[in-house]
Design a protein around this nucleic acid. Sequence first.
DNA 1: CAGTCGTGGGC
DNA 2: TGCCCAAGACT
Length: 290
Amino acid sequence: MYEPNRLREPILDWYSENARDLPWRRTDATPWGVLVSEIMLQQTPVARVLPIWTMWMVRWPTPADLAAESSGEAVRHWGRLGYPRRALRLHGCAQAIVADHGGEVPSDYTTLRSLPGIGDYTAAAVASFAYGKSHAVLDTNVRRVLARAVSAEEFPPNATTSAERRIAEALIPPVGAARWAVAVMELGALVCTARAPRCADCPIKARCAWHLAGKPAYDGPARKGQTYEGTDRQCRGRLLAVLRQAHGAVPKAALDVVWHDSVQRERALDGLISDGLAEALDGDSYRLPV
DNA sequence: CAGTCGTGGGC
DNA sequence: TGCCCAAGACT
């Protein structure tokens, strides 16, 4: 690859002036706070995470605090963030951290990667942002920025490729890898957005391969559009919302009224139970797991 | 590896 | 208005 500093320096300078003041980025944020933020932020906008993260940090300031609660309380206080299995996985993280790591969030990538709900991105992000380690942090923002700036493509491939990882690793600075990672992410989140990128405000527009090529339209395979209305996912969401609000046993009749199709409703309820998001009680009632 | 898994705001 | 998609992980 060509001289990495051609991209690094303007992006780092831009970040110095434009970084958002997010609570999990402050110097008083703990590794646990960083871990919680990263899992909450998976596929979820910052604006919706902020209030939930703040409540969690007050309620469960350490992994031990969350581990001492039932998984159902984690699900309840997940609220409407979406993908509630993340709440279970975060609870599982807390339990593993207490049981196997002395109550301290692990600092190395491989150990983080072994925790529930922590994949390649989140392990790299926590190691970088909580502990200042050097990793390629490849989230959707970074992948889009690199696709455009380096590969002259409007969008990255559907799945992360080894070529992308090679490009990202070549750009990691020898010093300040974590700041570089968050700076590229921030550029992707605020300027180099998926729709209507603000190229006029971009610090590397004169060096961006995609911009220099005249911003050619995406010509790759169609990206998966997600339908929602009428799906099992919507049904699960309705059912779980009832259980979250109930604070105790919910008679089945109270679930029946929120979804008309009984076949789909039963399938969704079974799914919630097998996922550990709900429990069946004697007497045909249900609740969040204890 | 393609499918599954929530939710709500912006354009 | 409907469609797109927002710091992915897991199977």
